[in-house]
Amino acid sequence: MKAHRRQRLIIILVLVALAGVAIGLTLYSLRANMNLFYSPTQISAGEAPPGRSLRAGGVVRDDSVQRDQQTLDVTFTVTDFEEDVPVHYRGILPDLFREGQGVVIVGTLNERGWLEASEVLAKHDENYMPPEVDGALKAAEARKSIPSSGAVTGGNDERI
């Protein structure tokens, strides 16, 4: 490679490296704000500001969803399998909302530690399969597992 070309290549590499470091440092300093949501563990540790609008994300705990028969009120528990946060919501839930499903909740923490949700979003995971396969998997799991608490979570829900 000729000297002037090598020099140009070095200048370009240095330029890209410097820009990369600048952007990397910016993202590092913003890391708390870059996350879309707080995990239940962060909320339990008091990292989430109370009384202000925030987002929480986790999995809807099995057997925790309770719907009011008269109104659109729903309560459920969102968990990251470390800590739980109880949630209250009034409104229509997305199609994918169900127990064991990842969700992102927009709302405020009240003084009792409940999350008053104004919006509930369902988080889709990276797994796709036809309904028959899902049915077969569930049947196999039911045959295999002796019912113990929390064992039947579908296997993929931890990857939130």
């Binding site: 890391r31 996350n35 879309l36 994300g57 988080k123 995971d125 990276e126 797994n127 796709y128 396969v133």
Partner: peptide
């Protein structure tokens, strides 16, 4: 980061999470 968008279904090293 925590995102609403799901992770990758396909990767070069793992079996795809899709039939």
């Amino acid at each position: 980061w925590n995102t609403l968008h799901q992770g990758a279904t396909f990767s070069l090293t793992e079996k795809p999470a899709m039939p």
